[in-house]
Structures are given as structure tokens and as C-alpha cells.
């Protein structure tokens, strides 16, 4: 059995958790056995309505009087106790902050190995070591990894697996089971937890007062790197972003220069963006930057150096000084509007 950890909001499963279920089903196809889910909180049972369609037969709804706020160690300990009962071949979590964290606590409590950010199944036969592919360096390298344990802990890298209902594609034609899409069965699970498990617990949530379009959600992102030359020169990029209803980002080099705040940083240790177009100005295209913008539908690079890496990796390129190209572009857009 594969046990999938499902994050949800008031009983509606998160997109990334549905992606992880695709990974879980691929493992179950190889290893045999069902996919079951675990969800935490008072409304956990409600995910059962949605999960049947994704091949989940049973939802283990973990409830506790102190689960009104997220508590990573308590969630990890609950998962560990559930694993003791169910002995799944693997626990699969989404590659989110919480998915990684709960999995890490589970792994720590039961000394189980954990492979984070998996992107593909190579082999997952029952009773054998599994071979999987996972991301390193934010996806600019792939690692073929071998994991062997009574229960293997895995997270699914975000946006690497499609959200798809079970039984889609070849499964039925191959003679596999066609899932009828009905609701999964809910089984309640009451973990045995003490004060120590709640030493770390969300005390409160503070809402941010950031204005404008968040980088991660912007349809257009204008990025500025070392080639921008100074903080004042971002005005031109701000103007371009405003004209296109987008947001401004920066490379790590520009943030390290102190030209932009870290919140604007795109890359391995900053924001991951997925706009319709990313306009990269004066950015060389180092690996650590490119992993942050690989979700962009299109990349337009503006750079004085035609040999810059980003000029090869992008879809469109303009050879030139951004301080000339961007103002001319702003004028041309205003004329066109």
C-alpha cells in the first residue's frame, strides 16, 4: 500500500497534493496494492469526496483537539503512528514546505530514509529497493537514487506530475482497474500525542501588506540583474512591468548588491515564477537563477553579451543595452496602447 499525505483547505485537497497522488499511483502500478491517503484536522474526512476520483480507496482522517493550528512535530508523530499500524511500502507527500517538514519528522521519529523532490519512477517492485529520479540543484541536475526501507519516505517535486484522475490513459486498456470515481472510505485515526509534540505550533498568522502582483502569480515578470547597474535604474523596469500589469524581480547578484530586497529574488533560494513571459534584463543566466524561472512559458533576454547563457536558454533575444532597449520598448508599448 502507498500512503499519500494530502494537504487540504477545509476539505478541498491542494493542487500539489493531487500531483503527489499521480506519483503515488505510478508507484502503486509497479508495486501493487492500493493508494490510501492521510489528511489532518477536523475537516480531513471531507477530502474523501474529492479523492476517490484520484484512485484513493481509504482516507485516514487524523484528528486531535490541538490540531486547530499546524504543529509539524505532532503531525509527523501522527503519521509515524499511522505507519506503525498500516506498514505502507511508502509514504508520499507533496514537495511543499509542510510536505517536506512532516515527512522529515516522520523519518526522524522512525529512522526511515527519505528522498525529497522525486520526479519519476524507474522501478518500484514490491519487496525490492526502488529506483527513482529526484531533483538536485532545484532541478538543474537529476539524481537517480536507490531507496530501500520497510517504509520509504518520498516527496513529489511540485509541478512535475500532472493532476489526473485515476484510470485515465492506459490503465484500463492494460487490464488495470477502472476506478468508479466514488468517494473514498473515511477511517478516523486518533494519535497519541503529548505536550512535547506541540512545542512547535503556529501561534498566529500575520497577513502581509505587500502591494501589487506577487512575483509567483504574475503573468509578466521583468527581471533585472547586475547589468542594471544600480538601484535607481530599476525605474525603467518598474515602468515596463506596470505597462504590462506585471511584477519586477531580480537576480541574486542584484540582491547581493543591495539594489533590490530579497523578496524580489528569482532563483534557487528565492521565488519560483511561472509567468506567460519573463523579460530578463542584464541577467547572465546562471544555473541558480534559471531554476527559478523554468516555469515561464517564454523568456525574452535583453543583454549586451550575445554569448550570455540566458541568450541561448531563452526563446527570444535582443542584443543591446537594457538602458536603451527598455525605454524604447516602454515608448513603443505606450504608442501601441
Amino acid at each position: 500500500m502507498i500512503l499519500a499525505f494530502v494537504e487540504h483547505e477545509h476539505g478541498t485537497p491542494a493542487e500539489t497534493s493531487l500531483e503527489a497522488l499521480t506519483f503515488a499511483r505510478r508507484l502503486a502500478d509497479d508495486a501493487g496494492g492500493p493508494v490510501e491517503a492521510v489528511a489532518v484536522g477536523d475537516e480531513a474526512g471531507a477530502v474523501a469526496d474529492a479523492l476517490g476520483e484520484y484512485g484513493v480507496e481509504t482516507v485516514h482522517a487524523v484528528t486531535h483537539e490541538r490540531f486547530d493550528a499546524y504543529a509539524p512535530e505532532a503531525w509527523g508523530a501522527s503519521a509515524a503512528q499511522l505507519v506503525d499500524d498500516l506498514a505502507p511500502a511508502a509514504v508520499v507527500a507533496p514537495g511543499t514546505d509542510r510536505g517536506h517538514e512532516v515527512c522529515a519528522h516522520l523519518g526522524a521519529k522512525r529512522d526511515l530514509p527519505m528522498a525529497a523532490n522525486c520526479i519519476a519512477v524507474e522501478s518500484a517492485a514490491a519487496g525490492e529497493a526502488w529506483e527513482l529520479t529526484r531533483n538536485r540543484w532545484g532541478g538543474s541536475l537529476r539524481e537517480h537514487t536507490r531507496i530501500d526501507a520497510e517504509t520509504k519516505l518520498l516527496t513529489a517535486a511540485e509541478h512535475e506530475f500532472p493532476v489526473e484522475p485515476a484510470g485515465d490513459g492506459g490503465a484500463a486498456a492494460d487490464g488495470g482497474t477502472v476506478v468508479d470515481g466514488g468517494a473514498a472510505t473515511v477511517v478516523d485515526f486518533a494519535p497519541d500525542l503529548g505536550d512535547d509534540h506541540f512545542r512547535v505550533r503556529v501561534d498566529r498568522v500575520e497577513e502581509s501588506d505587500v502591494e501589487g502582483v506577487p512575483l509567483g502569480e504574475a503573468r509578466v515578470v521583468v527581471g533585472g540583474g547586475r547589468g542594471v547597474g544600480g538601484p535607481e535604474n530599476y525605474d525603467q523596469l518598474e515602468e515596463l512591468a506596470d505597462l504590462l500589469g506585471g511584477a519586477v524581480g531580480a537576480s541574486r547578484a542584484a540582491v547581493n548588491e543591495g539594489w533590490r530586497p530579497h523578496d524580489d529574488q528569482i532563483g534557487l533560494t528565492g521565488a519560483k515564477i511561472s509567468p506567460d513571459i519573463y523579460i530578463a534584463c542584464g541577467i547572465s543566466g546562471a544555473v541558480q537563477h534559471m531554476v527559478g524561472c523554468k516555469g515561464a512559458e517564454a523568456i525574452l533576454a535583453i543583454n549586451t553579451d550575445p554569448e550570455a547563457a540566458i541568450m541561448q536558454k531563452g526563446d527570444y533575444a535582443v542584443v543591446g543595452d537594457l538602458h536603451e532597449v527598455v525605454p524604447a520598448l516602454n515608448d513603443a508599448i505606450r504608442d501601441a496602447q
Binding site: A301, G314, A317, V318, V319, G320, E324, L329
Partner: peptide, 17 residues
């Protein structure tokens, strides 16, 4: 796949639009 070169310098603006 090669990036499509839209032009050089400020003259590229109309093509970018």
C-alpha cells in the same frame, strides 16, 4: 532550440511589441 533574435538595441522595440 535557438532563441529568436528580435533585433539589436532600441531598434528592436517594435518587434518586441
Amino acid at each position: 532550440s535557438e532563441a529568436e533574435l528580435l533585433g539589436e538595441g532600441a531598434d528592436a522595440a517594435p518587434r518586441i511589441v
